[in-house]
Design a protein around this nucleic acid. Structure first.
Lengths: 235, 235
DNA sequence: TTCGGCATATTTGTATACAATAATGAATAC
DNA sequence: GTATTCATTATTGTATACAAATATGCCGAA
């Protein structure tokens, strides 16, 4: 089975792209958790490609901060420290503000329609499909960034939002989305009114709330989890 | 010659890192110009590594926007369009402002000393070593970002600054640095006085000047160079 | 000549082979 | 029983082999 029908060579990196996309989605939906080992052979088997391809995908994920790599020891899902997490949130705030500065000037009715549709999707997935809910919440921000029309901003927002999923997995409540739908709605409403400042304020408020939910919720720094867990058993 | 002494396997990616760093420097110093072909075999020969390694390095440069890759046709030094160039500058402005917001709060005398030393280097290289001058001008901004203490910001600033070198190569005057030393000095002076707003203003002014020098100087959009050149000969 | 088509040579994409390193576990000494 | 050493296994890093695609150049036909 798994007939090895050689596809006629499509676009460069299409294979590694699909491995990349698959792993990325698994990370963002928190199917793969921080610290999980990513063995090249194993991934290659699952995706039906050689280690060469897997390696390319892993290198890319590493560059984006989603996986850690140690020399001769391979790749694991990244475990951002609390300090790195704060850095990510700070950069995210800075970038998303700029996105809204742009959008306030150039957003079209069609753009707003797309955003509104996306929030509808979020509402539908909410509470009944945890993983999809997490992913969609992030994708709202990615959609905003791509509508901004600045590809560089869009790429960076994409990256920091993805890393936020990881941070949430580490420090937040399990399987909770980091975004409330009503907060997304407020941003859309402000954009619809072409009130740039209100949109930025709404985003500020939203991201502060996200940061709080992610970093100040139930758990302390998970890098010490093992130690503190053992403490409980060592007495 | 070139005794193939297998080094005892140091850190992962050390080899591809050195290829990456070499190519990157060549691009930033404008030894390699936009559009130049990057043949894998050729690079591998020069650096004494296999195509596998070269490929990894090229993929990384591609992810950072320094090289373009076309399916089955390989890699070339990137030729950012005017629109991409504007996106890069906008993102850069946004990121470097945030760097200064942070630095205004936390910069130490030692940091300022390092910055001052760097500007001294720039002055020394200025006018007698074109390539180094270009590189050092960019590295001033990268140093600022790294002193900010936010690794995410630092990485993004690094990227956009590098891409600016490329943009300058395409659209600016040949081998001119995009940064004036006096403008760098003004930023340091403002930081030394712990005047955050003045530092940000100086940076705004500086980056606007850089943008002008890069995008509004002698040449128009080079992506149309061939067409317009031919126009002149086709009449 | 000049154009189109075919053969050859380059170059890329992917898989695999092999060496080096790290992880695992068993056997031995104490 | 515990710890230490060594052999075995698993996994990574790099080079190479081969297939697919593209580029190059030659030749003949108009």
């Amino acid at each position: 089975m798994n007939a090895p029908v050689r596809k006629p060579r499509s676009a460069t990196g299409t294979r590694s792209d699909s491995v990349y996309a698959g792993l990325r989605r698994a990370i963002i939906e928190q199917a793969l958790m921080p610290g999980d080992k990513l063995t090249e052979d194993l991934i290659g088997d699952r995706f039906g490609v050689s280690r060469t391809i897997v390696r390319t995908a892993l290198a890319r994920l590493h560059a984006e901060g989603l996986v850690d790599m140690q020399p001769n020891k391979g790749a694991t899902i990244a475990q951002p420290s609390l300090s790195e997490a704060q850095d990510v949130f700070e950069a995210r705030m800075c970038l998303e503000r700029q996105v809204l500065v742009r959008l306030a000037k150039k957003v079209t009715d069609q753009d707003i329609e797309r955003l509104q549709q996306h929030v509808a999707l979020e509402a539908k997935a909410n509470a009944h499909d945890g993983p999809a809910s997490i992913r969609l919440a992030g994708e709202f921000h990615i959609l905003l960034a791509s509508l901004s029309g600045n590809g560089v901003l869009a790429r960076y927002v994409d990256e920091v939002v993805s890393r936020c999923s990881l941070i949430l997995a580490l420090y937040g409540r399990p399987h909770s989305s980091d975004c409330s739908i009503s907060e997304h709605q407020q941003i859309i409403d402000a954009l619809r009114a072409r009130d740039g400042q209100a949109a930025i304020d709404a985003m500020d408020h939203h991201l502060e709330a996200v940061t709080d939910r992610a970093l100040l919720s139930s758990h302390s720094d998970r890098t010490r989890d093992i130690r503190s867990i053992l403490d409980r058993y060592a007495s």
